[in-house]
Design a protein around this nucleic acid. Structure first.
Lengths: 112, 112
DNA sequence: AATCGCTATATTTGTTAGGATATAACGAAA
DNA sequence: TTTCGTTATATCCTAACAAATATAGCGATT
């Protein structure tokens, strides 16, 4: 059986984490569910953790990633901005490319 | 100021971690110092942690990565095998290549 | 056979991240 | 103006993880 190579990538803005795998799956869940609390529930993480993640994302992004409304119809909710959606898409693409790249690189170790 | 992209890669063997950045810096320190305890001291980590890391490396590698001698001249010591040295070298190379690759990919996000 | 510095391991103590819980504030709609 | 399901935040508690400490065992050298 051969070795496997794994990776974790993230994007920082001014030493704060903007996007990582956890944040991206959270953003996807928000997009799907329409609210932060439902997204947290669907991912089986606490609301607190989800809120902290999202807060840090919005604080470190150059443009808003979500729009959170408080009160109002249905109590409020959260939805991705266009910028947020394209960030998610780009991150996924980079991640997939990285995996493919690393799988090729792994050959260097397999034949030692 | 733009975003930065960071990564962490590691190699697994049969679901156990073989090499990661911490393990590689430990192996380098062992190579330099000639013993596990001195390596741990030079990295400011506890001997226990260093030992656990090295143990897990040797358990999951297909060939021995270090040769540890217990007792004897100077009380013993640890040194890298040829396989160990080439693993370290290959890992570093893959890591550097990955950074370069990701830096290019980051452009996709910069121009959103 | 005594010494030495190391590997190898168990045990105990400390620290920190996260979970659970509680609650205030909000604004549209009825 | 009351209800509702959110966002937003603070506080406490616990459980997982890391550090500190202790100690046994080893074997070449003297």
């Amino acid at each position: 059986m051969g070795y496997k190579i794994k990776s974790r990538i993230w994007i920082e803005s001014d030493d704060n984490v903007l996007l990582g795998e956890g944040r991206v799956t959270l953003l996807k869940a928000i997009d799907k569910m329409g609210s932060l609390s439902k997204a947290a529930k669907s991912l089986n993480i606490s609301y607190k953790k989800a809120w902290q993640l999202l807060d840090s994302v919005n604080k470190s992004a150059k443009k808003p990633v979500t729009i959170n409304t408080i009160g109002g119809k249905g109590g409020g909710g959260a939805e991705l901005t266009e910028y947020g959606k394209s960030l998610v898409k780009a991150f996924d693409e980079i991640n997939r490319n990285c995996w493919a790249f690393l799988d090729k690189q792994l050959e260097k170790i397999e034949l030692l």
